Simulated assay, not measured.
Amino acid sequence: MMANLFSSFDPSTFSSTSMSLNWFSSMIMLLIIPPMFWLIPSRLNMLWTNLILTIHKEFKILIKNNQWKGSTLIFSSLFSIILINNFIGLFPYIFTSSSHMSFTLALSLPLWLSFMLFGWINNMMHMFAHLVPQGAPSALLPFLVIIETISNVIRPGTLAIRLTANMIAGHLLLTLLGNSGASLKFHLLSVLVIVQTLLLILESAVAMIQAYVFSILMTIYSSEVA
């Protein structure tokens, strides 16, 4: 039994042992994805292939440097990891790893740091030009440089917080409504089931949208250092 509403985000809440299950739910995908490449192509396999190809075309448009061949594979894999973790977290009694900063920040920070190191080492003048907007007044240049620097530094944090907050908000609402079901009458309980079903559909859409937004923004950040 949960002690409070936020206990649903504790990986040890539903565990019968004292072991932490933070990363166990993220490893479930390793049991799902490999058979898709070895078995006879199914409708699910064709759907997933078409989805990845569509995402690949979207990322290819955003990446300005055509010499970075294969870079869309990184962002397509990032999209797949976040999407699968978000969907797995919608099942009952499964820990949602994408609702924790330790997971989202581990995805955004290394990629952003690698882009920054690549940009400052190989295209230093281009990176300096990004700190000063074109046509800005000379008197405002020191303040604009500070603002652009701060906005650039907080990018991995904003990416991680955006994904975490969206996952937590929906799960909290589902948990809050689900806990109130025991005290409702039958006619109100039927309404609650319909509302919960609609919220679950909405959360499924949010899971896909947040994975897409996270990977798209990371792709845009990578194109700025070219």
Rank of each mutant, 00 (worst) to 15 (best):
N4E: 09
N4H: 14
L5I: 10
S8T: 11
D10S: 12
S15T: 10
T17I: 07
T17H: 06
T17P: 04
M19R: 15
M19E: 15
S20P: 08
L21E: 14
W23K: 08
F24G: 06
F24R: 13
I28W: 04
M29C: 08
I32Q: 04
M36I: 07
F37E: 02
F37P: 01
F37W: 12
P41T: 03
N45H: 15
I52C: 04
L53G: 02
T54G: 09
H56D: 15
E58F: 13
F59H: 14
K60M: 11
K60A: 14
K60D: 15
L62P: 10
I63F: 02
K64H: 07
W68K: 03
K69W: 05
T72D: 12
L73T: 13
L73R: 09
I74S: 03
F75D: 08
F75G: 06
S76R: 02
S77R: 04
S80W: 05
S80V: 08
I82K: 07
I82Y: 02
L83A: 12
I84C: 10
N85R: 01
N86T: 04
I88R: 06
Y93M: 10
F95M: 06
S97I: 14
S98K: 10
H100E: 11
M101Q: 11
S102I: 15
S102N: 12
S102Y: 14
T104V: 05
T104C: 11
S108Q: 05
L109S: 08
L109I: 08
F115G: 00
L117N: 03
G119P: 00
I121D: 01
M125R: 02
H126E: 02
H126I: 00
H126G: 01
M127H: 00
F128N: 00
A129T: 01
V132Y: 00
Q134Y: 00
Q134H: 02
A136V: 08
L140Q: 05
L141A: 03
F143W: 09
L144C: 04
E148C: 07
T149D: 01
S151F: 12
S151H: 08
S151K: 09
N152P: 00
N152M: 08
I154Q: 07
R155N: 03
R155K: 12
G157L: 10
G157I: 12
T158M: 09
L159Y: 02
A160P: 03
A160G: 11
A160Q: 02
I161Y: 06
R162C: 02
R162S: 10
R162W: 03
T164M: 14
T164C: 09
N166W: 03
M167W: 01
A169Y: 02
A169E: 03
A169K: 14
H171W: 03
H171C: 04
T175F: 09
L176A: 13
L177Q: 05
S180Y: 09
G181P: 01
L184G: 06
L189F: 09
S190T: 13
V191M: 15
V191F: 12
L192G: 13
L192I: 02
L192F: 00
V193S: 11
V193G: 09
V195F: 03
Q196S: 12
E203Q: 10
S204F: 10
S204Y: 05
Q210S: 12
Y212R: 15
V213K: 11
I216C: 14
I216L: 15
I216Y: 11
Y221D: 15
S223K: 01
E224S: 00
A226L: 05
